[in-house]
């Protein structure tokens, strides 16, 4: 099941294949990686995401999802293969620009939000990327407004609910104006309302997204396309609805829809 065989007339991602495709937002080619202890996590991953696409990255625990994410912004360095972000190679001399282009929202907001107030945390990224102090406030305001958290700008992240923290985490990355958003389990630990609110925010951003998740209904809601990764390789790539309807594929890769859920 490959991307090219499923032209979907109703979505914008028909433009994602073909020789005339624009510069990919993300182009991963033959990526392989082994941890220093010898554990090989990735065995040649190929993945292409074009601007404007929202892609879910699905796979069981230990499939290599997080390892892949850490390659996208150069935290880990590829053993073999390459990662291009907007045409720019992930390599030491480009690291700062790569990290601006790839906005990673980590799974636990308490890891991401480390400054004493929300506004300072949102300002941290753009300040690192060279936005001058007098322009920071506008960046912070815009990012907080995009996630609906403007009124909490001077509070401590500690005083926020789980859903609010998640949205602030998103704002800290949006403030860097990334070309691709990478979300690690965005719906984890959220109550249903916070989960829905976050989905609304994500759908309203109109940005390129790669969403790592176990939450298959969430993938279906947010991402028109899904990629399944298992044992360090891409094993399926196609419209989310079709992948999730393939019971045999899901079973083979330890993926499961919640009880009572059925797609056909």
């Amino acid at each position: 099941m490959t991307a090219g065989t499923h032209p979907s007339p109703d979505t914008t991602d028909t433009a994602r294949v073909g020789p005339t495709a624009p510069v990919a937002a993300l182009e991963v080619t033959g990526l392989a990686f082994a941890y220093p202890n010898g554990h090989q996590a990735l065995f040649g991953v190929d993945l292409r995401v074009v601007p404007g696409e929202r892609v879910a990255l699905l796979g069981p625990n230990g499939a290599g999802k997080t390892t892949l994410v850490l390659h996208l912004n150069g935290i880990l360095t590829a053993g073999a293969g390459s990662v291009l972000v907007g045409g720019l190679a992930v390599a030491k001399p480009n690291l700062s620009e790569i990290r601006r282009r790839v906005g990673v929202v980590f799974q636990d907001p308490d890891d991401q939000l480390f400054m004493p107030t929300v506004a300072e945390d949102v300002a941290f990224g753009p300040a690192n990327f060279g936005v001058p102090p007098d322009a920071l406030a506008a960046r912070v305001d815009a990012a907080l407004a995009a996630v609906g958290m403007s009124e909490h700008r001077d509070r401590s992240p500690l005083r926020l609910s789980g859903g609010q923290r998640r949205r602030v985490s998103l704002a800290t990355v949006l403030a860097c104006d990334p070309e691709i958003l990478v979300l690690d389990e965005p719906s984890a630990n959220l109550d249903p309302v916070a989960r829905r609110e976050l989905a609304e925010v994500l759908l309203g951003l109109g940005r390129t997204m790669l969403m790592v998740t176990h939450d298959l209904p969430y993938a279906l809601q947010v991402c028109p396309r899904s990629v399944v990764i298992d044992d360090g390789v891409v094993v399926a790539d196609g419209p989310t609805g079709e992948l999730l309807a393939d019971a045999e594929l899901l079973r083979r890769h330890r993926l499961e829809l919640p009880f009572g859920f059925r797609l056909s």
């Binding site: 700062s96 990290r99 601006r100 790839v102 906005g103 941290f124 990327f129």
Partner: peptide, 8 residues
């Protein structure tokens, strides 16, 4: 890691 990802 999260700080590095935001250009620290």
């Amino acid at each position: 890691l999260a700080m590095l990802s935001r250009g620290w």
